[in-house]
């Protein structure tokens, strides 16, 4: 019962804030509602017993990415964009496309509902398997060591790319 209440609370917060993110005129409000969505998704992760990912979600998404968003919003003019027209001329086509996407997802879920009835899995004894962070860490550093290293290279490339993109050009380069 508690599980159900938590799921619907977090799910409702996530979906409603998500809708508000894409409908607000002021970008700062959108960023605030994005924060609410991210926190709610972290709560959903907690109900799924993925404590480590929930922590990473809060630290990296809310503490890193969202702050970066707000930082950039503050760097560039907000006032002018509030008064601009907010939606594309193509919004009718966009909504039709989205409706097709919804139908597609609903059809996929409907056809695939039988495959969701998976054989019951016996959860490994908690003492033998260790905590959630330990399990994730073991998987990261054994089976997924190569993807982990590639992810670190990706982050390095992203850092260099972001610096190169936003730095001032010297007169010699121009």
């Amino acid at each position: 019962m508690l599980e159900l209440i938590l799921f619907y609370t977090f799910g409702a917060i996530a979906v409603i804030s998500g809708i508000l993110v894409i409908t607000r005129h002021n970008v700062v409000h959108s960023a605030a509602f994005l924060g609410a969505t991210l926190f709610a998704v972290a709560g959903i992760f907690l109900t799924l017993h993925a404590e480590f990912v929930a922590g990473v979600q809060v630290i990296v998404y809310v503490g890193g990415i969202l702050v970066l968003f707000v930082f950039v919003i503050m760097l560039i003019a907000v006032e002018r964009s509030v008064h601009e027209r907010q939606y594309n001329k193509q919004w009718t086509i966009a909504l039709i496309t989205s409706a097709i996407l919804i139908v597609e997802i609903a059809y996929g879920l409907y056809r695939g509902r039988d495959s969701l009835v998976l054989p019951a899995v016996v959860p490994p004894a908690a003492a033998a398997a260790g905590g959630n962070s330990e399990q994730v860490g073991t998987a990261l550093y054994t089976s997924y060591l190569l993807p982990f290293e590639i992810a670190s290279i990706l982050l390095l490339v992203a850092i260099v790319g972001a610096v190169v993109l936003s730095k001032k050009r010297t007169p010699a380069e121009e």
Binding site: A14, V15, G18, I19, V21, I22, T37, V41, E84, R85, Q86, Y87, N88, Q90, W91, I93, A94, L95, T97, S98, L101, I102, I105
Partner: peptide, 13 residues
């Protein structure tokens, strides 16, 4: 959530 994201990408400027 995914559909909300798609609608946002397609409709906002």
């Amino acid at each position: 959530l995914f559909t909300i994201g798609v609608i946002g990408v397609l409709t906002r400027r």
